[in-house]
Design a protein around this nucleic acid. Structure first.
Lengths: 210, 210
DNA sequence: ATACAATTTGATTGATCGATCAACACAATA
DNA sequence: TATTGTGTTGATCGATCAATCAAATTGTAT
């Protein structure tokens, strides 16, 4: 009984996490969560006052999983800070391939579905984005003088998240990894140019080297 | 009677378009559409067999509006091809500000909410993305030798859509235009470097081959 | 004026939605 | 043994969901 010795609360969170990712929040009925988790409705409402509270718990779980599931595996792949960033992005690419481009980023999905409906949910989604960007910014900081010194690492970390989320959105809509791969390739190109400019120790945009 | 002389069909499409954008597809009940459009349920189902069929009609309307509402105003702002691309992106920025970052891109929202649920819907969303990218690629082609000749303009147009969608997603989640503006600024920086490399006619770094 | 098609009406359907609650089970403590 | 605290059960609630349909109305052509 690998599954049922987990607590009822955990089974509810994990089942809801999976179903929200597969189908979205509104499209997932409470009855479906109950059936797939093997839990009766009374038990759900013993732990969570509403369906929204269950969603908030799911978002907390995502925050807990960010480090061990997303960051650590990628950071183990290489000690190079820039390489680690692209290892994270490669992880999402693998997830796209594994799900045949059907699922995308769970946080991004929920962000566009309901960042207007519940203020608390929006804040947690915002917090998840911030935590992701902070980790990436840590890599940018660690890259030191390989990047131009005047470069805004804060906005660049936002830009990287932008490319990841936008790329996954398109790949899901097109049912093909190509848009994601193309986006990452252009981000890689941008990085190569930033690093080249950093090595030249000169301005990014205005440098027309002979 | 500026509103009521429109056909019932049109009023349904436009009301549904607005509500789907504001609340999402699943969160918008048919009864709400009927009330706000001033239409009885029987009339809706006279024109559209299902709620999904109404959504498909909404997506067709978005396709019709792409040229006159999104592209034309931006293209009138400047004859410069690269300037036109950023004028389009500026239009989305204005929309973000106008809605206080609550609504985002209607196509992107729907893409993440239901590109898995209905195959027909996914195909229309994919078509909308393709049409948008095609228009942007037209600008890139028109930019001629200002961009490196070996640059893949097809993937670059995808990248631009990626940045737009990803940036709007973050701005919505953060309730601030800053993530969008930061993302566009880095895209601008990337373009400046591409153009500088194009002028130098000897770029090594900007070679993107997906 | 008549006939026929196109559209509108609104009451109503069964299904499903999220949520409630009194009753019950089982351990730990008194 | 009695009591208390922690979960579990499942029938049931009213509300809302998308969708239906026969009847009434309007528009159009003859």
């Amino acid at each position: 009984m690998t599954e049922s010795d987990k607590s009822t609360r955990d089974r509810l969170i994990e089942t809801a996490m999976r179903l929200f990712h597969e189908q979205g929040y509104a499209a997932t009925g409470v009855s479906t969560i109950l059936r797939e988790a093997g839990v009766k409705s009374g038990s759900l409402y013993y732990f969570f006052p509403t369906k929204e509270a269950l969603l908030l718990a799911v978002l907390d779980r995502y925050m807990e999983l960010l480090e061990p599931v997303i960051l650590q595996p990628a950071f183990e792949a290489t000690p190079d800070p820039v390489g680690r960033i692209f290892a994270v992005l490669e992880g999402y690419r693998q997830a796209l391939i594994f799900t045949q481009c059907t699922m995308g980023c769970p946080i991004g999905n929920l962000a566009l579905e309901l960042s207007d409906t519940y203020p608390e949910v929006r804040e947690k989604l915002s917090g998840l984005f911030n935590a992701w960007c902070k980790a990436i910014k840590g890599c940018l900081d660690a890259a030191g003088d390989r990047l131009p010194s005047h470069l805004n690492r804060e906005t660049l970390s936002r830009f990287i998240l932008t490319v990841m989320e936008g790329g996954m959105m398109q790949s899901r809509a097109q049912r093909s990894v190509e848009p994601y791969e193309a986006s990452i390739a252009h981000l890689r190109d941008y990085f190569d140019q930033l690093i080249a400019a950093g090595a030249a120790k000169s301005s990014v945009a205005s440098d027309v080297s002979p």
